[in-house]
C-alpha cells in the first residue's frame, strides 16, 4: 500500500507543460502571436511603407528612394480630381446594389431553409456551398459564355424571337452586376442561415398560435431575429464587392474602372505609387465608414440582446 501511495504522489508539472499551459490558458495574447508576427511582416509593414509614399514627394534612382519629403499634395490632388469621385462612386454604387440584390435574393432562400424539410435544407446547403468550391475566376468566365454577344442567353432570346438583335450585356455595368450578385450570393445566404436556424422553431409556432399569419410571423418574428445575419452578410458582401477586382476586369472589359482596377493601373502600369497609396487609403476609409454604418444599424435593431444586466 505504501508503495502505491508513493506512485500517486502529486508531482509538479515540468517546464514544457507549464509553458504549454500558459499559452493555452486563454489569458494574454500569446496564442495570437504567430498570426500577429506574420501579419506584421506581410501586411502592416508594407502598408505603412505604401502610406508613407502617399504622404510624401520622393525621388527614385535605380529602384531606390533617394529623397523623401512630407506632403499632402497627393491626397488633395485625389480629392479634387473628378475622376476619383466618379470611380469611387461607381465602386460604391456597385457594392451597395450588389449587397442589396444579394439580400433580396438570399433572404428568401434562407427563409426556405428555415421552413423547409430536411431534404430542402440539404439541397439548399449543397447549392449554396458548391459554387464556393470553384474559383471565382472560373465562375466569372462562365458568365462570359452566357452573356456574350453570341452567348447562351442571346442565342436563346434570338431563337425564341423575343429580340431581333443580340443584346449588348458584356462589358457593361449590367454584366458586372450580374456576375457580382451570383458570386457573392452564398456569402450572404450562409450567415443568414446560421443566424436564422439558431432560434427556437417554436417561436414560429407560438407566433402562429397567437394569431399571426405567415406574413405577420415573418415581419414580427423571423425578420427582427435575423437582423444579426443581415448585418454580417451585408458587411461581408459589401467589403468583398467594394474592393473587388476580378469580376469588373473580366465582365466589364477593359473600360470598367472601379476603385480596385484604378489602384491596379496606378501601381502596375503608370507606376504612380503615391497615387495608388492615396487611392488605397480612400478605399479603406470609405469601406470602414460603411461597415461602421452597418454595425450601428445592426446594433440599433438588436437592442434586446444587450439588456441582460438591466
Amino acid at each position: 500500500m505504501a508503495e502505491a501511495a508513493i506512485h500517486r504522489r502529486i508531482t509538479p508539472p515540468g517546464f514544457g507543460e507549464q509553458v504549454a499551459d500558459a499559452l493555452l490558458s486563454g489569458r494574454g495574447i500569446w496564442p495570437a502571436v504567430p498570426a500577429i508576427v506574420v501579419l506584421t511582416v506581410v501586411a502592416v509593414i508594407p502598408f505603412a511603407i505604401l502610406l508613407s509614399l502617399g504622404f510624401s514627394d520622393f525621388e527614385m534612382s535605380r529602384g531606390a528612394i533617394i529623397s523623401q519629403t512630407f506632403s499632402f499634395s497627393h491626397l488633395t490632388n485625389a480629392l479634387t480630381d473628378p475622376l476619383y469621385w466618379i470611380t469611387f462612386q461607381r465602386s460604391m454604387n456597385l457594392a451597395l446594389s450588389t449587397t442589396a440584390l444579394c439580400l433580396l435574393f438570399g433572404y428568401p432562400v434562407a427563409y426556405l431553409f428555415l421552413t423547409g424539410g430536411p431534404w430542402t435544407k440539404r439541397l439548399i446547403l449543397v447549392l449554396t456551398i458548391a459554387p464556393l468550391l470553384t474559383s471565382g475566376i472560373v465562375r466569372t468566365y462562365a458568365w462570359l459564355v452566357i452573356l456574350g454577344g453570341r452567348g447562351v442567353l442571346n442565342s436563346a432570346l434570338l431563337q425564341a424571337g423575343l429580340i431581333d438583335q443580340a443584346l449588348r450585356i458584356m462589358n457593361t455595368h449590367w454584366a458586372v452586376l450580374i456576375g457580382m450578385v451570383q458570386i457573392h450570393l452564398p456569402v450572404m445566404i450562409l450567415p443568414l442561415i446560421a443566424v436564422m436556424s439558431r432560434h427556437d422553431s417554436r417561436l414560429v409556432e407560438a407566433s402562429e398560435n397567437l394569431g399571426a399569419s405567415r406574413i405577420g410571423t415573418l415581419r414580427t418574428v423571423i425578420l427582427p431575429l435575423s437582423v444579426p445575419g443581415i448585418g454580417t452578410g451585408s458587411a461581408l458582401v459589401f467589403t468583398l464587392t467594394y474592393t473587388t477586382f476580378v469580376v469588373p476586369q473580366i465582365l466589364g472589359g477593359g473600360n470598367y474602372l472601379n476603385a480596385a482596377t484604378m489602384i491596379y493601373e496606378q501601381v502596375v502600369f503608370s507606376l504612380e505609387w503615391s497615387k495608388g497609396s492615396v487611392s488605397s487609403l480612400i478605399l479603406m476609409v470609405t469601406c470602414l465608414m460603411v461597415l461602421v454604418a452597418i454595425a450601428l444599424l445592426t446594433n440599433h435593431f438588436t437592442k434586446w440582446t444587450k439588456g441582460h444586466d438591466a
Binding site: 427556437d200 407560438a206 398560435n209 405577420g216 427582427p224 434586446w304 440582446t305
Partner: peptide
Amino acid sequence: NRRPVGVVFQSYALFPH
C-alpha cells in the same frame, strides 16, 4: 392562427426581441 386555442410551450417560446 384561427383556432381558439392557446399553447403554453415547454420552453415558453417567448419572443426574445
